[in-house]
Design a protein around this nucleic acid. Structure first.
Lengths: 337, 337
DNA sequence: TGTTAGAATAAAAACGTTTTAACAAAAAGT
DNA sequence: ACTTTTTGTTAAAACGTTTTTATTCTAACA
C-alpha cells in the first residue's frame, strides 16, 4: 500500500520522530540525516496522511465555506475569492451548500467535527445560536454578505454608500420622480439601498412616493411584473432603481415591450453589475460590488483568527468587526448618460 | 474542551466500543444501552472527530474536486452538480483550483494524502502520468469535460452530436458558405465541433473553405477580431459558427458595427448557451450543454467506484468508460429563424 | 580526567476513533 | 444437565502522525 512514516524511517535508518521533524522542519536536524530522510521520502513517494496529521496536530489546514444553494454567479465570485485566499495561506477548502429548507441545518455538523480550522459563512440565515455554538468551540467564524452581530466579524458591501452614489447620479440627471423595485422580503441589502435612496432625496427636499416602491424577489420575472405595474401609474416615474440587475434588465424589457424607450422615456438602473449588464441594450448603469474581494478578505480574516486561544473581546478589539467594502458606480447607457 | 467518545462512554456507563457501534449502528446493541448512549451523546453535544474517524476507518466520506482556475460560470455549474451529487450521497466536497501555470501541479498532493475517497477532475490538462499515479493508490478518478483514455472514466458533452445538429440546422436554412471561429489552440472540444461541421457538409457534397476557418481563443475579443477578418473576404460567409457563445456574441457585435445585419446579412450561432445568450439582440441560437448534469453524473460515478478494491479492468467492464451527454440545439433568432 | 552543556536522535506518549478478538451471559439444542 | 449457539459487551489493537520526554554522543570546560 501507500508508504507510511515508518517505511520512510526504516528506509532512511532513522526514527519516525526524526522523519517528522525533517518534514516539518520543526527542530534541529543534522544536514546528513536530513538529506537521507528526504531521499527516502522521494524514493518511496511518501505523502503524510492527512488524517493522522490532523489528529496529532489538532489542526486541519482547511477552511470551511458555507454558501447558499442558489444558482447565482454572484456567489461563485465569492467562492473564488475565498479559494484564492485559502490557497494563498496554504489552506484547503471544504465546501458545503446550505440546503434549501434552511431550517434543516444539519450540514453544520460537518464543521462541528473539528475538521476545519475556521469557516466563512456566506449570506447565511441559519440560527445565530448554532453559529455561536460552533464559534464557542474555538472555530473562528466570519460572515460575508450578512451580519448577525454578536461579536462575529462580518464583511458586507457598502449597500448604503453604493445606493447613495447612484441616487445622487440620478438626481444629477435631473430626474425627480424615482421608483424602486425591491428584493426578496425587503432583505437587509434591499432595505439599505432603499434607505440610502430616501435619505438622498430627503437631503434635496424630495421623497419617494409610496406608490413607486414595488415589491420584488430578485428574480427575472418580478422585475417585469413590477415594471408593468409601474407603467399603470397615472404619472410615470422618470427613473427606476431596481435592487439588482436581473430585475433591472427585465424592467427594461417591460418598458420596451410597452413601446417606450430607455432611457429617453424612463431611465433604469440596477445593482450588482452582473456580466450580462454590459451586453443588454441599452447597457445597464449599475453598482459594482466587490464580490471577489469580499470572499478574499473574509477568508484572510478567518484564517488570521486561527491560533492562540484568544477570547472574543480581545479579538474584536484588534480590528473592526464589520467591514463595509466599497461599492462603485458603473455608468453606462440606461441612466441617460 | 469538546467531548470525546470517552466522555460519552463514561457518561453512559459503557465502553467506547459500544458508543461507536451505536453511532454507526454497525452491530447489534440492546435497545436499553442504545438509548442510554444516545442520551449521553445529546447531553454532551458530542460529534465524532473527523480525523480520528478518518484515520481509523480509512475513509473520508469526502470527494475531491479539481477545477481550472478560470472565471467561467460554466464551471460553476459543474461544481453545483458535483456538490449536489456528493451531498446526496452523504459526501463532503474538498475543492482545489488548478493553478494557472498548470505545470506546477503540486496541488494534487492534497489528494495524495488520502483525505478524499474519490475525485473528479474537470477539464484538467495535468500530466496523465500524475493522475494515474493517484488512481493507482486506489483513489477512484473520474474526468469531466476531458478524456485522457487509460481506463479513466470520462464524462463529456456530445460536441460532435451538438455541432452536427447545428450544422444540419444551418443547412436547413439554405446557407451553404459556412465559417467557423475556433477555440483555444484547437482544443479537442473545438476540434470535434469543427469535425462534425465538416462531416455534415461532406454528406451534402459541400465543404468548408479553409479561409473561413478562423483561429480564436474562446475569449471575448477574439470573436470580434476573427469576425472582422472574415468581413474582409471577397465573398462573405452566409453563416458563422463560433466555438462558444462569448465569441459568437462578439462576432455579432463586429458585424453590426460594420453596418451589416444579423441574421439578415450573416447568421451567427454559438455553443454553450450561457445566460447572456438569450439577452443579446438578436438572441443567439446555440447549443446547450448539460453542464450541471455532467458534474452530477461524474460525482455519482466517482462515488460508486469507491469501495471493494476492484481492478481497473473489471471496473470498466461494468459501465462504459466514456459517456457523451447529449447537447441540444437551442433555436433563437440569430440563425434566421 | 571527569564533569557539564549542548546537539542530535530515539523512544514513547498522546490524538480519538473503528474494528477485531475475547468473553460472559442467556438461549437453544441434544 | 451439558454442550453449543446466539447476543451483548468489553478490552485491546490498530490507524499514522506530532510532540514530549529520555537518551546518547560530542565538545567544552574546570
Amino acid at each position: 500500500m501507500t508508504a507510511t512514516i515508518f517505511d520512510v524511517a526504516k528506509h532512511a535508518g532513522v526514527s519516525i520522530g526524526t522523519v517528522s521533524r525533517v518534514l516539518n522542519n520543526k527542530d534541529r536536524v543534522s544536514p546528513a540525516t536530513r538529506e537521507r530522510v528526504l531521499k527516502a521520502v522521494q524514493e518511496l513517494d511518501y505523502h503524510a496522511n492527512a488524517f493522522a496529521r490532523g489528529l496529532a496536530s489538532q489542526e486541519s489546514n482547511t477552511l470551511g465555506l458555507v454558501i447558499p444553494q442558489v444558482n447565482d454567479p454572484f456567489f461563485f465570485q465569492i467562492v473564488r475569492g475565498v479559494e484564492d485566499a485559502a490557497t494563498d495561506e496554504g489552506y484547503s477548502l471544504l465546501i458545503a451548500s446550505q440546503p434549501r429548507p434552511a431550517h434543516e441545518h444539519r450540514y453544520l455538523d460537518l464543521f462541528r467535527r473539528g475538521n476545519v480550522d475556521a469557516m466563512v459563512l456566506v449570506a447565511i440565515d441559519v440560527y445565530i445560536h448554532e453559529i455561536q455554538q460552533i464559534a464557542a468551540r474555538g472555530v473562528p467564524i466570519v460572515l460575508a454578505q450578512q451580519d448577525v452581530g454578536k461579536n462575529i466579524p462580518a464583511f458586507l458591501s457598502d449597500n448604503y454608500g453604493g445606493s447613495h452614489a447612484m441616487t445622487e447620479h440620478l438626481l444629477g440627471h435631473g430626474y425627480r420622480r424615482l421608483a424602486y423595485i425591491a428584493g426578496t422580503n425587503y432583505t437587509p441589502d434591499s432595505r439599505e439601498r432603499l434607505r440610502a435612496m430616501q435619505d438622498v432625496l430627503a437631503e434635496h427636499g424630495l421623497s419617494v412616493s409610496p406608490e413607486y416602491i414595488m415589491p420584488g424577489d430578485y428574480l427575472q420575472d418580478s422585475g417585469y411584473r413590477a415594471m408593468m405595474e409601474l407603467l399603470q401609474r397615472p404619472v410615470l416615474p422618470e427613473a427606476v432603481f431596481a435592487a439588482n440587475d436581473q430585475m433591472a434588465i427585465d424592467a427594461i424589457r417591460a418598458i420596451q415591450e410597452s413601446g417606450l424607450r430607455v432611457p429617453d422615456d424612463i431611465a433604469v438602473v440596477g445593482f450588482d453589475d452582473i456580466p450580462m449588464s454590459s451586453y443588454v441594450s441599452p447597457a445597464l448603469t449599475t453598482i459594482q460590488q466587490p464580490v471577489y474581494e469580499m470572499g478574499w478578505h473574509a477568508a484572510k480574516r478567518a484564517i488570521a483568527m486561527i491560533g492562540p486561544e484568544v477570547n472574543v473581546e480581545e479579538r474584536t478589539l484588534a480590528s473592526p468587526r464589520v467591514m463595509l467594502l466599497p461599492a462603485s458606480l458603473v455608468v453606462r447607457k440606461s441612466c441617460g448618460c
